[in-house]
């Protein structure tokens, strides 16, 4: 089982992730060029970059400043979510073994804390969906499913790292859930990891280049 999930299954998952995202981005680009010409006639790199960078900085936009707690939570969630798997020691050791390349790695105690941050923030985000009326009204089971898909690799990874009861089960579950997340990205809302830059570039140009208005 371990051989399968780290071998063919990993190739399939990464293949679907990269290929799926490439197909998605390119097809959306061409579809936009065919149907939404309005996107391109005021496109501006300057406004696009401004709009993207402003929204990548914590408290860079007015809406972020209006909801400071949520902004802190969502930024720590996203930052830890990205950093932990990429700079995790064990992931990089496997990378080194397979391809002979390895990135700078985090100390294990730090990755442990980052993982806990991800899990705690996911719990917070789920509670927020229940607690706040304006979030609850737009929430459906799908939102919880996506939260679960995102949180699962971290929960199982945490349990596996601490060798909680059945280690082999948790590790294989961890690898599988990570692969499920990778496969899910091109087909679900998680694709915002790439589409964020496209839609932000559009609104930045739309509001900025066309009207001289800031979108933050």
């Amino acid at each position: 089982m371990y051989q399968f999930v780290t071998g063919p299954m990993a190739w399939i998952a990464f293949g679907i992730f990269f290929l799926g995202m490439a197909v998605k981005v390119v097809s959306l680009f061409y579809l936009t060029r065919e149907k939404d010409k309005v996107v391109f006639n005021h496109f501006s790199w300057q406004w696009s970059l401004k709009s993207i960078i402003r929204w990548l900085i914590p408290f860079g936009s007015r809406s972020m400043r209006e909801k400071p707690l949520f902004t802190i939570i969502t930024f720590s969630f996203h930052i830890c979510l990205l950093i932990t798997p990429i700079f995790l020691l064990s992931h990089n050791i496997i990378l080194e073994e397979r391809w002979g390349i390895s990135l700078w790695t985090l100390p294990e105690s730090v990755s442990d804390i980052l993982t806990i941050v991800v899990i705690v923030t996911v719990v917070f985000l789920a509670l927020r969906r229940i607690a706040l009326a304006d979030v609850r009204i737009v929430t459906s089971a799908y939102d919880y499913l996506l939260l679960a898909i995102t949180a699962m690799p971290f929960i199982t990874g945490f349990l596996a790292y601490h060798q909680f009861s059945n280690y082999k089960f948790w590790l294989i579950f961890h690898i599988l859930s990570g692969e499920i997340m990778l496969i899910a990205i091109p087909f679900t809302r998680l694709s915002h990891i790439f589409l964020f830059f496209m839609t932000r570039a559009h609104i930045g140009s739309e509001m900025g280049q066309r009207r001289g208005a800031a979108t933050w």
Binding site: Y2, A160, L171
Partner: peptide, 26 residues
């Protein structure tokens, strides 16, 4: 350790642990 264990697994022979926590046991 792991490289050899993995090779043995590839050849379909009895082999040792390859998963991180099976060697590095708490």
């Amino acid at each position: 350790c792991k490289g050899c264990h993995e090779n043995y697994a590839k050849w379909g022979r009895t082999t040792g642990p390859v998963m991180c926590g099976t060697c590095h046991t708490k």
